[in-house]
Amino acid sequence: MSKTRIYWTLQIAGWTALIMYENILYSLSYGFEEDTLYSGIANILLGITLTHSYRLVIRRWNWSALPMHKLVFRVGLSVLVLGLIMTAVNLPLDREILAENLVNQPFVFWGYFSTWCKNLLAWILSYTVYHYVEQNRLAELEKIMLKTSMREAEAKVLRSQLNPHFTFNALNSIRALVSENPAKAQHSITQLSNILRNSLLADRRKTVELREELKTVEDYLELEKVRYEERLQYSIQAEPQSVFWQVPPMMLQTLVENGIKHGVSKVMGGGFLEVVTTIENNTLVIKIRNTGTIGAIDPLGNTDSGGVGLQNTAERLSILYGKDARFRLVQEAENKVCAEVIIPMLSDGLQRYSDEKAVTPQEQ
């Protein structure tokens, strides 16, 4: 049932029940009179008209958005005005219909006025409180939607960036290979195109499977190895269950790039980089260890080109997972830095892994 239909149902049923209840009490005390029935019907229509007019006013002038003290003043004034109108209409009619019963009633006007104000106050408070709560709920919902849209826009910007210096260096390395090792140059171009494609697609996807990220990281490290040669040694160790876990796109590549730029490249004889992924307590743990020291890294983790840094990695995790995800950078040893990322489950990755393992070679 729509809100409008519910409103009119409650209006008609509420006023009818109130007026008929009072008429029944009067009839039990003084006997049934046909004129009181007509008067009751008139009061039902008048009550619906006045309270509906109040509804139009509160919606037209958006009273529910007013500060509480201003809203209370308007509600109180409305009760007095509507109560006065109901009294002004009913008292003359009742003097004709119920003349004998009103002759000896002291303070007739104030009795009528207080009774109608009490009835109208109950209706007006009920509707105003409902409308006030509904208005605030919608306002909070709009704030949440706006905040979500802003965070999503930020996430798209953060995950779609690729360090232009890497692209420039990779192209230079490939250019040197063209004459020395054409086959290797061709393979490197394929690897670079894979990285660029994933970077372009990153703003269209919130998460990707870890195995896709690891392939991008492997392509990236192979291109960097062309540049650093024996100065760069790397290894990638992924627990089979972890490869289907959903992770932010290009995040792992960003951390690996940071480890090489601020670690391996700073050491005269080169160094190592290690990527290890495991499942611990139903969460994905990614550890990227590399040669270097934390002191050599910009406090914000930004690259010289102003690309995505460690601070942006933490922000992306917060946007996607909230407090369930964590990121930290620690100095594990004198010349070993570890970037650790903890990501909660966001998909049915483990189930997919189990399903694939259950398929026999014949079925494949």
Rank of each mutant, 00 (worst) to 15 (best):
S242C: 05
T190M: 09
E213F: 03
R204C: 12
R204Y: 09
E212K: 02
R205A: 08
M251W: 06
V247Q: 02
S199H: 04
E222L: 12
L223Q: 06
L200S: 14
S188C: 10
S193E: 09
M250Y: 03
E222F: 04
A202H: 08
L223M: 04
T190A: 11
K215C: 00
S235V: 11
E209N: 08
F244M: 11
N258I: 11
Q191H: 07
T207L: 10
V208Y: 03
E218R: 06
E224G: 10
I236Y: 07
L200K: 14
E222H: 09
T207K: 01
L221Y: 05
E257V: 05
E229T: 14
S199T: 14
E218K: 04
V243F: 06
L200Y: 12
R231V: 11
L214A: 08
L196G: 01
Q237I: 15
R227Y: 03
V243P: 00
E230M: 08
R204D: 15
L210F: 01
A202S: 12
R197F: 04
L252F: 04
L255C: 02
I189K: 05
S235L: 07
K225V: 13
W245C: 13
Q246A: 13
R197D: 09
L196Q: 04
Y228C: 00
K225Y: 09
S235A: 08
L255F: 00
K206F: 11
E224L: 07
T254A: 00
Q253G: 12
Y220S: 08
L223V: 07
W245M: 14
Q233R: 13
I195A: 02
E229D: 13
S193M: 09
P248I: 07
N194Y: 12
V226T: 15
T254P: 03
V226Y: 14
V243R: 04
E222I: 12
T254L: 06
P248Q: 07
L201G: 11
S193F: 06
N194C: 12
N258A: 02
Y234S: 03
V247D: 01
Y220R: 08
L252T: 06
V217P: 02
Y234Q: 00
Q241V: 14
E257I: 06
L232W: 05
L196T: 10
E239S: 11
T207F: 03
P248V: 07
L221S: 01
L200I: 15
E209C: 07
S188A: 10
